[in-house]
Design a protein around this nucleic acid. Structure first.
Length: 294
DNA sequence: AACAGCATCAACCGCCATTGC
DNA sequence: TGCAATGGCGGTTGATGCTGT
């Protein structure tokens, strides 16, 4: 038996979203929160499938998304996480809160896959790949061991990220931009720390190209900030707001009390936070830096 | 200037997981 | 417990822009 489509195909608009549609969608989510996607097309009058609405929101309209060039730090994170987790783009995206899984997936398919292919070709006769592979497989083994011990996932789910970002947006809304809480900052510091550790460990700047040095830019829809205020969403989200708080609480604990009562870090996180881990990859990159590829 | 081939990325599709009744 | 509805994810497509000839 054929499964019925998720939404009526008749009268459903496809293709690129117009700014008008975006405004309608964002206004609706501002009022009701990012949930119950099924009712979004009906309540907004948008001739879009509920999935399409959700996708548009999560990938482009959701606040806090950075678009444009990936930094070398982000590249390093993606390369390592892909090797570790495979094509689990949502999982990888949870380590890069400003990037969407779709963005990472696209970037991997269009840029990084090629780079890695070249990398492998160049390094096929050196020890570099084996050093790197052994490190990755070690990470993977430990990740598997951790997942056997804990039922909860070792990375923040996308939903959690969205909650966290929404909370961040609420706090950085025009009225309170200057007064971001210390909690949020420590959370950001933790994320930044992870990125910096990964970048320094991988020495991935070897892979950096000229145009990437300019860095990314914020999604053009940031102007929507001016028409958005999430205060009512916050009060709307009975459990949701609390959930966001819990996550932030957990992240704070994780960032501050690595060795105390907080849940154990995944091996990857340990790796990212480990001061000495760069040594192994220094060895790898030293060889690569002398290769003609870079 | 015109065309072809290539690269990029937004969006769609279909499958699987989760949730609620 | 089983089923239907819904959400989430990864793979893929297709429109568009860019580059080389």
């Amino acid at each position: 038996m054929v499964r019925p489509p998720c939404c009526e195909k008749v009268g459903i608009k496809k293709g690129p979203w117009t700014p008008e549609e975006d405004i309608i969608l964002v206004s609706y989510i501002q009022e009701h929160g990012p949930r119950n996607w099924r009712s979004v097309p009906t309540n907004t009058g948008l001739s879009r499938c509920s999935k399409s609405c959700r996708l548009r929101w999560t990938n482009y309209l959701r606040p806090g998304i950075k678009r444009g060039n990936f930094t070398s730090n982000e590249e390093g994170m993606i390369i390592h996480l892909q090797a570790l987790l495979g094509n689990k783009w949502a999982a990888i995206a949870s380590y890069l809160p400003q990037r969407t899984d779709n963005d990472i997936k696209n970037y991997w398919n269009t840029h990084l896959k090629k780079k890695l292919k070249n990398f492998q070709a160049v390094a096929s006769n050196s020890t570099s790949t084996s050093v790197y592979e052994s490190m990755i497989s070690s990470d993977r083994r430990n990740l598997e061991m951790n997942s056997n011990h804990a039922s909860s996932s070792t990375y923040a789910s996308s939903t959690e990220n969205i909650s966290r970002l929404l909370e961040g947006w609420m706090r950085s809304s025009p009225s309170s931009k200057e007064t971001q809480s210390k909690d949020h900052q420590s959370n950001e510091n933790f994320e930044n720390n992870m990125l910096l550790k990964a970048a320094s460990a991988l020495h991935i700047e070897c892979l950096q190209t000229k145009d990437e040095k300019e860095g990314g830019h914020i999604v053009p829809y940031e102007e929507f900030d001016s028409i958005l205020c999430f205060e009512n969403l916050k009060s709307d989200e009975d459990g949701g707001g609390e959930k966001g708080h819990d996550i932030e609480e957990r992240n704070r604990e994780r960032g501050e009390n690595n060795n105390n009562n907080a849940p154990p870090l995944s091996f990857l996180e340990k790796w990212l936070l480990d001061e000495n881990v760069g040594q192994v990859e220094d060895e790898m990159m030293e060889e690569l830096s002398s290769s003609p590829m870079f």
